[in-house]
Design a protein around this nucleic acid. Structure first.
Length: 593
RNA sequence: GGCUCCAUAGUUCAAGGGAUAGAACAAGAGUUUCCUAAACUCUAGAUCCAGGUUCGAGUCCUGGUGGAGCUACCA
């Protein structure tokens, strides 16, 4: 039984014996730094059940605990706060247990047999990935890893939006203006090449529109009548009809794009267990609409379109099938979700990493799936995140005002190099070793910068000065890890000294142990809240704690053998925790920097 | 118009209804015979406004103000 459970049990006993009242739960929080003690019980909530003065109650419980539990050294009551001080021997014992555990806190025992499917990325295939995708990828990947660490099986997936008018636009522009360029002939990444033609399409489209307007059409008419958009629509129809030439072109260009994406994913360090393609799923869902129509979940209007009435749930009516019988976005999403549940029978919940502009869509989707009677519908979650803004305003891919993912990664790597060079670190390393390190640092900065922010909030991303290598940043944390590695290289520990029960902990040592012991709970919290930011910020706290420890106490030159052993081991556990923590954020850690 | 989200030091971020709202950057002042100074220590600085619920509100509720998003037989 762990200490909190034991405390909780005894507090209940105390209250039972003194007041004859049964308590359901007792909640603890760690004691604020400026007060003596380790764990705090807030007495105020108990006042509803027990009549009396909070200070007296606190003192009675405290006295009882001190008598019954050896690990409780003493207590104090400030106003309604019962601060419990835990004996050093308790921390030393726990530390002894975890000090060789490479996965402490980050590998919960598996519970339940239900897996979670996490969808993220899901790009369109007509243009390269940009900064918005980067946030999506980092969040999705990290949340998947967090859920995994919390003890659940996870499938990472994405649906690649490989069909539709957008890719036809690129295809058409390539046919018209492309002179049969290929990634090989141009040296461009495939997704970049295809993206360029998407921009070219839009330029041509705009030119035709203004042309038509100058000849007397309204803007609305012009948008519909421009020859190039008509051609794109025709191409889409050909694709849907299975026209061989069109499909061949589509396949050729998609392959280019996939190769480009693969490179970006590799650089970002994200991966997937299962891919879905919209071209294979866009027809799904209709059968469930038909089914829902029979069971009364949906209704049909006179023109033949099918709707779901969500007004009883405070939402609107939502279309699920067009009057011509074709599917809409919602239809596909219903079909795809159900397909996934079929493909992976152990999946008991799904997480969709999609921008917050689609909140309404997912609210409706989840509600409809619930109405269709799937029991896993309760465990659908929209991991919604805010936009990434630039100082110059909103990103628009058509206008080319985006930050390209590959360029960004490259830029970050170069910034890392520049700063490292200025500091004159890394003398005597080979060029490739240095390059590797710059990438770890640059990407660490980027990933940490994005993940430390609450997903719901918008990020204002200034590529120039928003990335800092000091303070609450990835490189700061990486640096701390590297320094600990240096200690470990230099430490010459004799035999493992299995002490420690007589040892009196230094304040800084105790704080560090307390920080480390928090992590199992942090992981569980982060998994429940789908929040990498929680982990990032706790890790940063640990690092600051360590840095202060490092500067203020001597490690290798400690006063006694036992002190040094403890401090070196403690450093090692901190390093392990940092490494595990960054790992689930998708951030690598350098041995030296 | 309706609905949803956001608002905390000059700036970027924290704070499971709990104690004196934490950090970092920027500003100012210190610390290198010693384990990596990309560090540490100290100083100054904030909850958009008005009500309410509560022993206790940055957090919950109501109403404002400001910003963003959604409100398609597009995806």
């Amino acid at each position: 039984m762990n200490l909190q459970d034991s405390l909780s049990k005894h507090i209940k006993e105390a209250v039972k014996s003194i007041y004859n009242v049964e308590l359901d739960v007792v909640e603890f929080q760690s004691t604020r730094r400026d007060f003596a003690g380790d764990l705090t019980v807030v007495v105020f909530p108990l006042l509803k059940l027990l009549k009396g003065n909070p200070v007296t109650i606190g003192e009675q419980i405290g006295t009882y605990l001190t008598k019954k539990i050896d690990d409780v050294k003493s207590f104090n009551v400030v106003k309604g706060f019962l601060n419990i001080e835990i004996a050093d021997s308790y921390y030393l014992n726990v530390f002894n247990q975890i000090k060789e555990d490479e996965t402490f806190g980050f590998e919960s025992p598996k519970f339940g047999d239900k897996a979670i499917m996490v969808e993220y990325s899901s790009p369109n295939t007509n243009k390269p990935l940009h900064l918005g995708h980067v946030r999506n990828n980092l969040l999705g990947y990290s949340v998947a890893e967090i859920i995994k660490a919390s003890g659940k099986k996870v499938y990472k997936t994405q649906i690649i939006n490989d069909r539709g008018i957008h890719i036809c636009k690129s295809m058409l522009a390539w046919q018209r203006f492309g002179n049969h360029e290929t990634p090989e002939s141009t040296g461009l990444k495939g997704d970049k090449l295809v993206g360029n033609y998407y921009v070219k399409f839009d330029q041509e489209y705009k030119r035709e529109i203004s042309d038509l307007i100058s000849r007397g059409k309204t803007e609305e008419e012009a948008k519909k009548l421009a020859p190039i958009i008509l051609a794109a629509q025709e191409m889409l129809q050909k694709w849907e009809a299975g026209d061989l030439k069109t499909v061949a072109l589509w396949e050729k260009m998609n392959v280019w794009v996939y190769e480009g994406f693969a490179e970006t994913y590799k650089n970002l360090g994200v991966d997937f267990d299962k891919l879905y393609y919209e071209s294979q799923t866009y027809l799904l869902g209709k059968e469930f609409v038909a089914e829902g129509l029979r069971t009364g979940v949906f209704f049909q209007k006179e023109d033949g379109s099918v709707w779901c009435d969500l007004t009883p749930d405070g939402l609107d009516e939502k279309i699920v099938l067009r009057s011509d019988g074709t599917a809409v976005y919602m239809t596909q999403d219903i079909g795809t979700a159900i397909q996934r549940a079929k493909d992976f029978p152990d999946v008991g919940g799904m997480v969709y990493t999609v921008g917050n502009e689609q909140e309404y869509h997912f609210k409706v989707l989840f509600l409809i799936i619930q109405k269709l009677g799937f029991e896993w519908a309760k465990y659908l979650y929209h991991l919604s995140y805010g936009m990434v803004d630039l100082p110059s305003g909103k990103m628009k891919s058509r206008e080319g005002t985006v930050v390209d993912a590959d360029d960004l990664i490259e830029e970050m790597t170069q910034t890392a190099e520049q700063i490292s060079e200025e500091l004159g670190k890394l003398e005597g390393y080979s060029k490739s070793e240095k390059q590797e390190l710059y990438k770890i640092i640059g990407l660490g900065a980027l990933k940490y910068y994005i993940l430390k922010v609450d997903p719901r909030k918008r990020i204002l991303f200034d590529p120039k000065d928003s990335i800092d290598f000091q303070g609450n940043t990835g490189p700061f944390i990486q640096y701390t890890y590297a320094r600990i590695q240096s200690i470990l290289r230099k430490a010459e520990l004799k035999e493992d000294v299995q002490i420690f029960s007589e040892y009196v902990l230094h304040d800084k040592e105790k704080e560090l142990i307390k920080q480390i012991l928090l992590f199992p709970e942090v992981i569980q919290n982060a998994a429940v809240n789908h929040s990498p930011a929680l982990i990032a910020n706790y890790t940063y706290d640990l690092v600051r704690e360590f840095n202060s420890f490092y500067q203020n106490v001597s490690i290798l030159g400690a006063d006694s053998e036992i002190e040094m052993t403890l401090r070196v081991k403690l450093s090692k556990v901190v390093a392990t925790t940092i490494k595990n923590s960054l790992k689930i954020l998708g951030i690598d850690v350098p041995e030296r920097m």
